[in-house]
Amino acid sequence: MEKEMTYELAYQELAEIAQEIETESVSVDILAKKVKRASDLITFCQTKLRSTEEEVVKIIKQMENETGA
């Protein structure tokens, strides 16, 4: 059973892929797959960050409404 993807797991995997590419330890045969996976992880992280930001803004607005600020 695969673990649910979290921002932290995605970021960690992305860092590992970047390290592999930077040190040229990725064979040319699988480079395209690694780059595609990195692209998917970046999209996931960006979506997660936007969602979290929207939720935080919503909570702050609710707090301001409740305190009359």
Rank of each mutant, 00 (worst) to 15 (best):
M5T: 05
M63C: 10
E53N: 10
F44M: 02
T43G: 09
L9R: 10
K48G: 01
Q46N: 14
Y11R: 05
I59V: 12
K61W: 07
E4Y: 07
K61F: 06
K61I: 11
S39H: 12
I30H: 09
T67K: 11
R50Y: 13
E64P: 00
L31Y: 11
V28H: 06
E2G: 03
E53F: 09
E24M: 04
T43M: 09
L49D: 13
E64C: 11
F44R: 00
I17M: 03
T47D: 14
I59H: 10
K33Y: 07
I60L: 14
I30M: 06
S25Q: 11
D29W: 07
K36H: 13
T47R: 11
Y11A: 10
F44G: 01
L31T: 05
Q19H: 12
K61C: 09
K58I: 02
M5F: 01
N65A: 14
N65Q: 15
T47G: 14
M1P: 01
V28Y: 10
Y7W: 10
Q62I: 08
A69D: 14
T43V: 12
K48N: 05
M63W: 06
A15N: 05
T52M: 12
A38W: 00
T47N: 13
L9H: 02
I30W: 04
R37H: 03
Y7H: 06
I21E: 02
R37Q: 08
V35A: 10
Y11L: 09
G68H: 09
E2D: 07
T6I: 02
K3I: 04
M63D: 10
L9E: 02
V57N: 13
M1Q: 05
L41S: 00
Y11Q: 08
K58D: 11
L9T: 03
Q12L: 07
E20K: 03
I21C: 02
K36I: 07
T43E: 13
S25T: 14
V28N: 10
M5P: 01
S25K: 09
